[in-house]
């Protein structure tokens, strides 16, 4: 059945309407979770606010487990889902650079959109910087074209590297996430003396 667009079940301009709706949901959730504030985001690195870790890992495990069930019931053909290709060298560099950018800038691109939406000037500057960064990369591309495509491993999955099934990988990520949730809760309790636990 799914994914719908690659299989031509949804065609024409409808996919743009859906893109708009999905983007809307994405932005709403990011903002409502508090990602429009760079201090909330950066808190994850200093132990005073773990909202990034919680939202991020919860979303990750929900999506992963969901994909497994979608696959099981035949609702989605995992072969047609885009698997981000792996280029070892350039991704190592990219990850490290983004780590620096994250700590210094306090945003990532998606969150900075929502920050701009509610009127944060630092979000605008971040996006301007982001724009400049991509421009630098694009114009300098011939210099590191070989590096960029070096270590091409194709659309490889975690399971294929480790020799495990997607199910085991998912279970592992779920366990790591749960440990992180409970562990950060303890840390947060210690760092913030007056803690206001989130309640349902």
């Amino acid at each position: 059945m799914g994914p719908l667009i690659p299989q031509g079940i949804i065609t024409g301009q409808w996919d743009f309407v859906i893109a708009l709706l999905i983007g809307f949901a994405f932005g709403f959730i990011l903002e409502a979770s508090g990602f429009s504030s760079s201090r909330n985001i950066a808190g994850v690195f200093y132990g005073y606010n773990f909202v990034v870790l919680r939202v991020f890992f919860t979303a990750l495990i929900v999506a992963m487990v969901g994909l497994l069930y979608f696959d099981y019931f035949g609702w989605i053909n995992l072969d047609l889902v885009y698997i981000l290709p792996t280029y070892i060298h350039s991704m190592l560099l990219g990850g490290v650079l983004m780590g620096f950018g994250f700590v210094i800038g306090g945003f990532c691109p998606g969150t900075s959109f929502t920050a701009i939406a509610i009127g944060k000037l630092d979000g605008i500057v971040f996006i301007l910087g982001f724009f400049v960064g991509i421009a630098i990369f694009s114009f300098g591309f011939p210099l590191y074209e070989d590096f960029f495509t070096a270590g091409d491993m194709g659309n490889i999955t975690i399971g294929e590297i480790l020799g495990l099934s997607n199910q085991i990988v998912t279970l592992g990520v779920v366990l790591v996430a749960l440990v992180a949730f409970w562990g950060t809760w303890l840390i947060e309790k210690r760092v913030r003396k007056t803690i206001n636990p989130f309640k349902f």
Partner: peptide, 8 residues
């Protein structure tokens, strides 16, 4: 979530 992920 543990049951769901182990359930598969």
């Amino acid at each position: 979530i543990l049951i769901l992920s182990a359930g598969v």
